[in-house]
Nucleic acid binder design. Structure first.
Lengths: 104, 104
DNA sequence: GACTCGCATAAGCACGTGCTTATGTATCGC
DNA sequence: GCGATACATAAGCACGTGCTTATGCGAGTC
């Protein structure tokens, strides 16, 4: 998966929200659907797109399909941004902030 | 400009290529057009979209319009990714590599 | 087996998007 | 002023996208 498709898949706000809800917490489709005001097929379609981009994993268990986010799939996106993000001092300051927050 | 529009604007490959060409080097529209096999209006339309997202700046000089990229506009995108990119060890290793390359 | 349940897929539709050609609007050279 | 140049904007079109409802399909329940 190249960054081209990542940008496209993440461009839709609903799909991005679906991804965000799946970060750190595995959810079944119906549980996930509860958070949105769209139909179940719409949720499944977003999940299929996210899955094609490698952004979510699927785990089948009986009738249920459990999905979880794979943030590592964002790496190509980070790589692309890194190529064009100058202003490294600010960047490093930002990173320090994040690390500081993680220490707490 | 929020990350929503950044993703959408960067989702188009041609538009992303336009942005990439303008990083570090200011160019006029016609000079920019020379690198693509699309019409001049198409280039102008991409530039307008990039400008609305704050990704490029415009400088008028007589008949000419010079455009240049503003990579700092990518910050909201980086912020968004930072919220969901776990796997910090790898991330820091990557950053170290970049810094090492910058020292040379 | 018959009926749910959880989810995926199909088909259709409204709307967005990226391109084209045509045209408008300054600015320059003469 | 007049034509050419550089670019932007308008209008139209083909295609993509995200949604809906309808349907399919395997897994569970009885």
């Amino acid at each position: 998966m190249i960054e081209a498709d990542l940008f496209r898949v993440l461009a839709d706000p609903t799909r991005r929200a679906v991804f965000e809800r799946l970060v750190g917490r595995e959810m079944s489709v119906s549980e996930l659907k509860a958070g949105f005001e769209i139909s179940q097929p719409a949720v499944s379609q977003h999940l299929a797109a996210l899955r094609a981009a490698g952004l979510v994993r699927e785990r089948r268990e009986g009738r249920f399909a459990y999905y979880s986010a794979d943030p590592q799939a964002l790496t190509p996106l980070v790589d692309w941004v890194d190529r064009y993000r100058t202003f490294w001092p600010e960047r490093i300051e930002r990173l320090k902030d994040v690390l500081k927050r993680m220490d707490r």
